[in-house]
Design a protein around this nucleic acid. Sequence first.
DNA 1: CAGGCAAACGTAAACGTTTACTCAAATAGG
DNA 2: CCTATTTGAGTAAACGTTTACGTTTGCCTG
Lengths: 334, 334
Amino acid sequence: MNPTIKDVAQKANVSIATVSRVLHNLGGYSDKTKQKVDQTIKELKYQPNAIARGLINKRTQTIGVLFPDVSSAFSSDLLHGIDEFVHNHNYSVVVCNTDQDGKRTLKYLQLLREKQVDGILFSSEVLKKEYYDLLEDMRVPVVLISSQTDFPNVPYVKIDDFQAAYDAVDYLVAKGHRRIAMISGTKGDPIAGTPRIEGYRKALEAHGIAFNSRYLFYGDFMYESGSRAMKTILKKAPEVTAVFAASDEMAIGALSTAAQHGLNVPEDISIMGYDDLRLARMVNPPLTTVRQPLNDIGMIASGKLIDMIESGEIAQSQICAHSIVERQTVRTIT
Amino acid sequence: MNPTIKDVAQKANVSIATVSRVLHNLGGYSDKTKQKVDQTIKELKYQPNAIARGLINKRTQTIGVLFPDVSSAFSSDLLHGIDEFVHNHNYSVVVCNTDQDGKRTLKYLQLLREKQVDGILFSSEVLKKEYYDLLEDMRVPVVLISSQTDFPNVPYVKIDDFQAAYDAVDYLVAKGHRRIAMISGTKGDPIAGTPRIEGYRKALEAHGIAFNSRYLFYGDFMYESGSRAMKTILKKAPEVTAVFAASDEMAIGALSTAAQHGLNVPEDISIMGYDDLRLARMVNPPLTTVRQPLNDIGMIASGKLIDMIESGEIAQSQICAHSIVERQTVRTIT
DNA sequence: CAGGCAAACGTAAACGTTTACTCAAATAGG
DNA sequence: CCTATTTGAGTAAACGTTTACGTTTGCCTG
């Protein structure tokens, strides 16, 4: 249907090898032939077939990206960075939405294997043994995003969750708060759960504030759960002056609930988020939060992955810098 | 490296044709051979190579999706629906972020061609002649999302923008508003711009309210532009009682600005959005808006595209139903 | 002017499948 | 028991590239 390299060769009266050579600037042909070939390529509007190429050099110039939820603001910020970097380096991205479902994840991994992707980016999920085994089998480089693992040869890029939470709470304390509640992520989550809780505890302790389990609440990172948690905070621990949420979405849920209960933020209660999604700037008042540079993280992870693909060497994990972005949901208590 | 069909054939003492046959349940082999083959497939952990398969049947089971901005909430809602449908039908998705840049778009189209995608989903952008020509050349089915075209053989799926805007304004009028401003999208945008403005005008006229160009403002669908527009509304047309924004993001920008100017929404001014992104529920007060069923639109468009790929026939365009979702940013004026 | 060498190009195998064609053995029909 | 048909299987071409290797030509050197 589409013209092939063979068509070009025939029309230009050369062999396909020659066409291939001029296509790749490999030398071994005269200027005259180059001209002739270039010319007929234009005439026929010839486009190389990446599939055929992939078959022979065992490279598809494609990477697979797995997200627990593509439609979340978190994932799409990451995806933006990934897409940009990856395309700039002549790769493409195929996205898969795991829905946090092990079966689905495994299925997608199989799919990516069949499609011969050159590497895999695995985001925001813990790398289970069964995933790891399959990945090992595939002999394909993997890098984790916003996650972490002890399995060998799997670098990750993320921020320091413990430190970020610590800094957030430290910030709150510096602003004069002492009765600080936390809306944590999913209970037992070893990546985005426990470390952030630990950061919260340790920061409290460092300032001589006893950890009070009545001030610790669990959500699932989503808006509704933040909203629910805030309701119980308001009921059971109304003396709290500040709430630290382990995600912006939960923080915003808390914010709305507070407002709906007639509280002013930050006058009556301070709220601090985690992530710095685009959202955080858009709510009102704008959310003070700890920033994960998601776009950069996406780019860095892609960079590492492509390095691994092209060099065959294992990249180093990287901890990116977080920062606190002060907006208007935290007040100073005097 | 990985075992191929040939390895399986050798180990099982059959020909590769036989292996291929049992792989595809084509019949023409005894139970005994099937068992033997299935067995060795398991032993070798054989996985078919989709690249080789793609080369021969000229199908990659992959579709390309172009977004102006993958990281927008709008795109990611669409992507969610697309991803789900597409994967359920044994295709994969490769995403491209055009940044609304013609050069980039063309480049991606080329890329998708080289990668031999089976079809293309083109979202939220007008199909320029140069894109269309290239697409024609590629001989690949295309369907437009949230866009429209007169070019033949390119179906689209979207809502009725004129009617949706009309209904929104009609709703506002029914609530007693008469001085209604509009924050429109990009000036001259033939899809998401003009028709919505027309809906606004016509709805006004239908109720005997004269269109007043002082009440029409232009943004670019993004948060900041809504915010800016609101500022000028407040300054130049403070008598306005309701603002209809052509996107949720702009509506939310307007909302924040109103709040920052000490106005209560909806008591002092009503605001209505357009899209019903996840965001709309999260701001506060929750945004009244006209809903585009983005997830469904993504699924429907994917369905049409896959139909076209598999049947070779051109699908019908489809206008999806919009609806007004009442939340708390519009008040009744008596 | 023979010999050698580089430049310019062609030949063909390989990548891992699918599938049209062929063929032998088994079975069925008369 | 012989022929016709079906069943079970193998052979090889094809998909569109890349690339190792081979071949031809012309030119330079001694």
